[in-house]
Design a protein around this nucleic acid. Structure first.
Lengths: 138, 138
DNA sequence: ATTGTAGTAACTACAATGGTTACAACGGAG
DNA sequence: CTCCGTTGTAACCATTGTAGTTACTACAAT
């Protein structure tokens, strides 16, 4: 059983921290809150930066959001840390035997169902914004 | 990026084969259609057997379904090959810092959203039955 | 008894993950 | 201009899940 990488939950954690305490958000400060290594944070911050979600200040340190927290969805974060590429949540055994009626037809039939299932999950993520999470942090 | 194991798609392939050509379904025949090693098939068949989906005849060989194809959903198969355990599609970074307001609260807030997203995907799988797939195999 | 099959154990190769150390590049503050 | 804390990377490493393979035992019908 292999799960979706914790990069995703860490990325949400990072963005939440920046939203809540924008002043003190150096890599080390964030790493302390997430409870991991600062390099992990920097790598994920790099992905968030590349996705246009945050701005990082090299040298002096610190980061800020490039979008309002109510404009950042969990799906945006999920895509930013490319925990899953495009439509590929489900792995499919490759090259089933084309001489067999099942082998020949199962791929397209099953893939389309799996795509729909993945899409249902992602659309659920799209409905949650960062500020819907952060308002819960008292 | 790590995908859900192809055990799942192979399991669906196996069950489809049994539904379509129940006579000739030895491990080697199935392995040829799936295009993999017979041992892989036997392992997955063992999981399907344990889940009460199929019956396997040791010695003589062959297998048959224990439920009607319209009573077997993709979710049943997904659970049978325990590609994901219970509510754990998403991995969560463990032990965020409890001294930080974000670290203290993010886990429960985010986990509940992720559980809902996973559930949306699984409920989509529950809507597809084996015979809805096999009717597409001409 | 022979034969073909299922059931397993043990092993390999590979890839993704999470983490670590080390170091260069950067930008203010003194 | 120099120092210092920070960001940005590269290079590793250990662990884990996956997929496959070989080899062997157990089984059931002929």
């Amino acid at each position: 059983m292999k799960q979706i990488s914790s990069r995703f939950s860490v990325a949400v954690h990072i963005l939440s921290l920046i939203a809540v305490s924008p002043k003190e958000c150096t890599g080390d400060f964030i790493a302390d809150s997430v409870n991991t290594n600062p390099v992990i944070i920097r790598k994920i911050m790099g992905m968030l930066k590349k996705a246009g979600l945050v701005e990082v200040r090299p040298g002096v340190g610190g980061a800020s959001l490039l979008k309002d927290p109510d404009q950042i969805t969990l799906l945006d974060v999920y895509r930013a840390v490319d925990v899953i590429e495009d439509g590929q949540l489900f792995n499919f055994h490759d090259e089933p035997n084309q001489d067999c009626p099942v082998g020949r037809n199962i791929e397209s039939a099953l893939r389309s169902e799996l795509r729909d299932a993945q899409s249902a999950m992602e659309q659920r993520l799209a409905q949650v914004t960062l500020d819907q999470l952060t308002v819960q942090f008292h």
